[in-house]
């Protein structure tokens, strides 16, 4: 199962969901399939699940998708009990498990030697935590999650194959501003406010 094929199955259905992506090629592949200012690239291991959880709690009426990796989630396993405890019904946490640290030399992660991330998520208290084993099965479960109103954790064992796509077109700060302006516009809220000294007003 290729990650790019899985992503392709949900790109349209994701609609206006806010999408937080982890380090590695998943960001580039997702952005090629669904270019949007509603994409937020974390670019490091560990924080994807936490940021997506906070975002989902901040915008409970908006679907939030975390596109995570095995190496990233292994660094932040303690986010899973918190996610289970808060149980945001608008969050879909997808983990593409290729069993390697893909961006840094492809050495095996612990999932290659038996660590079961879906098992950990389930044991942490996430009720809808399941593995998918084919692109069609992934698409079916992901559609159920995207159309539903329940916290989902979806595991997908994928190959290490990468798809050639363009590089990510911006740095962190630009990504933040574009993302925030997108949220402000689509949610009709104000997030960024500049404090002007009284002599300026």
């Amino acid at each position: 199962m290729k990650r790019f094929d899985c992503l392709g199955k949900i790109a349209k259905a994701a609609s206006d969901a806010l999408v937080v992506t982890s380090a590695g090629a998943v960001t580039l592949e997702w952005n090629a399939l669904r270019p949007s200012d509603g994409n937020f690239r974390v670019r490091t291991l560990g924080l994807c699940s936490s940021i997506a959880l906070g975002m989902a709690l901040g915008l409970p009426q908006r679907k939030v998708i975390a596109l995570d990796g095995d190496g990233s989630l292994l660094m932040n396993l303690c986010s899973l009990p918190t996610m289970a405890r808060m149980e945001p019904k608008n969050l879909v946490h997808i983990v593409f498990d290729n069993e390697v640290y893909e961006a840094s030399g492809s050495k095996q992660t612990a999932t290659a030697t038996g660590t079961d991330l879906v098992g950990i998520a389930r044991a942490a208290g996430i009720r809808q935590a399941l593995w998918t084993h084919s692109v069609d099965e992934f698409a079916g479960v992901a559609m159920e999650a995207l159309n539903g109103h329940e916290l989902f954790f979806i595991g997908a064992k994928v190959t290490t194959e990468r798809t050639e796509v363009p590089p990510y077109p911006m740095d962190e700060v630009e990504n933040k501003y574009r993302f925030i302006r997108h949220v402000e516009k689509t949610e009709k809220i104000a997030i960024l406010k500049t404090n002007l000294p009284s002599s300026y007003t």
Binding site: V20, I51, G54, A56, C78, S79, P81, K176
Partner: peptide, 26 residues
Amino acid sequence: VTYVQVASENDGVGICMGAWLGGLKP
């Protein structure tokens, strides 16, 4: 206030960041 009890401060930083991106003041 929305109160989130975390199991690690690292997770707490990420959650606060997401909350701000979602329009809250964390």
